[in-house]
């Protein structure tokens, strides 16, 4: 039997390098601020953040798999649990809860009570449509795509828009079978 995947990211979190939370928060804030200045349109900023997250995600998954000792997940439910408990803990220092599964087990919600990205942040009237943490959805999308899962991720609740928590809806679109570039008998 394969070793059980770690159910909590505490051990990994204790061993990875960390930076000061304020430095992290303010650096991310500076990036968002600069994007708003450069792109001017809030919609464009959301798109750009998602793209940046995607680019981070496709790299981050390798780091994640190398350091966390997570074995292959048997189904999407387990994948979601690992992201919420190990992934978020390892890179953000917080854990998410997985709720609201649909009947087919292909979509669920990740709920974050605490989000270090948004300390100090308050959206001014000019940026009301801004999805400040859009980078996170991009990261998850990119990371899952690298392990052959096409997903669609949307924000359902956002504390900056006045909700009581952060909720990411993760929807599995399709599982891409692994393709080999050559045939065995070649």
């Amino acid at each position: 039997m394969a070793p059980l995947a770690p159910r909590s990211g505490d051990a990994v979190f204790a061993s990875v390098e960390r930076v000061n939370a304020e430095l992290f928060t303010l650096t991310y804030g500076a990036i968002v601020r600069q994007l708003i200045t450069d792109l001017e349109e809030v919609e464009e900023v959301n798109k750009q953040l998602d793209q940046m997250g995607y680019n981070i995600g496709v790299r981050l998954i390798d780091e994640f798999l190398a350091k966390s000792n997570v074995s292959r997940c048997v189904d999407f439910k387990e994948t979601a649990e690992v992201i919420a408990k190990v992934g978020f803990k390892m890179f953000l220092g917080v854990t998410a809860t997985v709720i609201n599964w649909d009947a087919e087990g292909t979509s669920c919600s990740l709920v974050l009570e605490d989000n270090p990205l948004v300390d100090f942040v308050e959206l001014p009237d000019t940026c009301q449509g801004l999805s400040y943490c859009n980078i996170l959805s991009g990261v998850i999308r990119g990371a899952l795509e690298m392990v052959s899962m096409k997903t669609e991720i949307t924000w359902v609740r956002d504390m900056l828009q006045g909700d009581d928590a952060y909720e990411l809806r993760v929807k599995l679109l399709k599982q891409v079978p692994e393709e080999y570039p050559y045939k065995d008998d070649d």
Binding site: I36, V121, L123
Partner: peptide
Amino acid sequence: KILLNPLYLPGSRITS
């Protein structure tokens, strides 16, 4: 706290 908000421009009106 206001000043640390990345979306606040220092020296501008506090509208919060």
